[in-house]
Design a protein around this nucleic acid. Structure first.
Lengths: 265, 265
DNA sequence: CGCCCCGTTGATCCTGTTCAACGGTCGTGG
DNA sequence: CCACGACCGTTGAACAGGATCAACGGGGCG
C-alpha cells in the first residue's frame, strides 16, 4: 500500500470540491436518480428497435469465451455473470461482476474477438444482440446510441474504480469495499441491500480482489467480528448480511489516512 | 500474490488455445496489423465529418478535470497524457496513460460528468470533439461509429489488462510489464521502442502500479542489473533503454509459475 | 547558498502469503 | 448405512515481499 495522493506533483490539484466524483460516493448518485445499469425502459427500447435473442443460462454456462470471434453484444436480463480476463500466459482474473442491465462483450469490439470469458454465476437470461444490427439501429435511433455509450462508459468507470480499490486499499478494506459495491449494485436495481448471497468461492473473490483465499476468509471473519457484516443465520458462509451499508463505507474510508491533519481528537 | 488460474471451478476451462487473447501477446497482434490506437486515416475521417477543435498542451495542463460537466471527447494528436481517477475520499490513482490516437473522456458519458482528471505529460495537441456533434455525425457515417466504439473497447481492454497486471505480478514484474507496454504503445505508433523517455516521477509510476516509489526505484535498479533495461547514458534516470523488448516480456512471464508441470529440465 | 524535489539505497517492520491442519458438506459407491 | 474423497471455509504458524522510515547525493532555482 502506498500513500494516496502525492501525485500530480507538476500540476497542483485544486481543492477536493464537493461534487460527487465517482463510484464510491454513491449516496449523491442515488439521490440524483442515476443508475449503474441500463434501465428497464431502455431495454424495452432496445427490444423495440431490433430483434434480440434470448438465452437462458445456468450456473457455469459461458456467455462467450476468450478467443471467440466477436459478433454480438449481450445484456444481462436476470441472474449475474463474471467476466474473466484470460491472458495468453495462463494468468486469469475475474475483472468484473455483472448484474441485471449490464452489458457484456464490449471488449471484443476493437479486436473483433473476445478477450475475456463471460460466465453465468446463476440461472438467468441474457439478451443477445447482433452488433452490426445494433449499429444499424443506432443510426436510426440516437437514444439507442446514447444508451449504448452510457453502458460502455459505465463499464470503463467501473473498471477504473476497481483498479483504484485494488491498489489503494488494504485487504480488509478491499473486501469491505467489494461487499459495499455489491450492495450498491443491488440497490441501484431496487433490490434489498442488506442481504447478499455471494455466488463465488473465497478463491474467486480473492482472485477478483488480488489476494489469496485465506486473506479473504480472514478479512470476512474480522468484518464479522466488527459487526460490519453478519453471516447468514442458517446456511453457508456465502450469505452475507450487512446491517448498515453506510457503516461498511465508513470503514473503508477509515482505513486510509489514519490521521489526516485535523484539529484535535 | 496468488496462484493464477484455479478459478472457473464450476466450469472447467478448456485448453489455452493458441489464439492471441489479449494485450500481452502483442507479437501476433502487430503481425495482424492491429493498432492499439485510432489510426491517422481514421482521424482524417473524423476531421472531415465534423468540426473539431484543436488545443495545444503543455506539461501539466488539464485536458479536463474530475467533476466538470461532460461535453466533449478528446483525441490525443501528439504528446501524451495521464488519466487520474480521483475519488471523493481523496484517493487518487493514475489509471491510464494515453498516447497519440488515444481517446479521452469516455468515462464521462454515463454520468454527464467527468470522473477523472486528464493531464498532459508533455507538450502536445488534443483534438476536441463535441460529443453531441459526434453522435450526430455517427448517425451519418457508420465508419465513424465503428471507430469510436473500437476506441471505447480498447480503453476497456486496456484497463482490464492493467487490473490483471496489478493483481498477478510481483513488484519487479509489474515494472517490467509497465515498461514493456510502454514500448508496445510506441511500436504500435511506428516509433522506436528501444528508447523510452518516462515522463513521470517514480512516485507517479508507483501510484500507477500500486506500489511505493522506493519499490519502483529498486525494481528498476534490479532490472538494470539484469541488463533488461539500461539507463540513459547521459541524462536523468528517466531515460530507459530496452535492449530487447522480447527479453523484458519473457522476464514477466518467467516470474509467474516458477515450474508448471513439465517433463524434465 | 539554501531550499526543494528527485532518485537511490539501507534497515526495520508489518501485512499478506504460504504451508498446514481441521471441520463441515455433498455426492458417490461399497 | 457409512466410508470415502473432493471441495469449501476457517484458523494457526512461519515466512517473505514490499512498505515504511531514514539518510544521502544530485540538480534546478530563487
Amino acid at each position: 500500500m502506498q500513500t494516496a495522493a502525492a501525485i500530480n506533483a507538476t500540476a497542483p490539484s485544486f481543492e477536493p470540491s464537493s461534487v460527487c466524483r465517482n463510484a464510491s460516493c454513491d449516496a449523491a448518485m442515488r439521490a440524483r436518480g442515476d443508475e449503474g445499469c441500463t434501465k428497464s425502459s431502455e431495454l424495452e427500447l432496445l427490444a423495440q428497435q431490433l430483434s434480440i435473442g434470448r438465452r437462458l443460462l445456468r450456473e457455469g454456462d459461458f456467455i462467450y469465451r476468450s478467443g471467440q470471434p466477436f459478433t454480438h453484444l449481450y445484456v444481462l436480463n436476470s441472474g449475474m455473470a463474471k467476466v474473466v480476463n484470460v491472458c495468453a500466459d495462463g494468468r486469469e482474473q475475474v475483472v468484473g461482476l455483472q448484474f441485471k442491465g449490464d452489458w457484456l462483450g464490449i471488449e471484443g469490439i476493437a479486436r473483433g474477438q473476445h478477450g475475456c470469458d463471460a460466465v453465468a454465476m446463476d440461472t438467468g437470461e441474457v439478451w443477445t444482440v447482433r452488433y452490426d444490427a445494433l449499429v444499424e439501429a443506432c443510426t436510426r435511433c440516437p437514444q439507442l446510441l446514447t444508451m449504448l455509450h452510457a453502458a460502455m462508459s459505465r463499464e470503463l468507470s467501473r473498471e477504473r474504480d476497481s483498479m483504484l480499490s485494488l491498489s489503494t486499499l488494504c485487504a480488509d478494506a478491499r473486501v469491505a469495499d467489494f461487499l459495499h459495491r455489491w450492495a450498491q449494485a443491488l440497490a441501484e436495481r431496487g433490490l434489498r441491500t442488506d442481504q447478499i448471497r455471494l455466488r463465488m468461492s473465497r478463491a474467486e473473490i480473492g482472485n477478483f480482489l488480488g489476494m489469496t483465499l485465506e486473506s479473504v476468509s480472514r478479512a470476512m471473519s474480522r468484518l464479522a467480528r466488527m459487526e460490519l457484516i453478519r453471516f447468514g443465520s442458517e446456511g453457508g458462509r456465502r450469505d452475507i448480511e450487512i446491517p448498515q451499508v453506510a457503516a461498511l463505507e465508513r470503514f473503508v474510508e477509515g482505513t486510509l489516512a489514519p490521521a489526516p491533519a485535523r484539529a484535535l481528537q
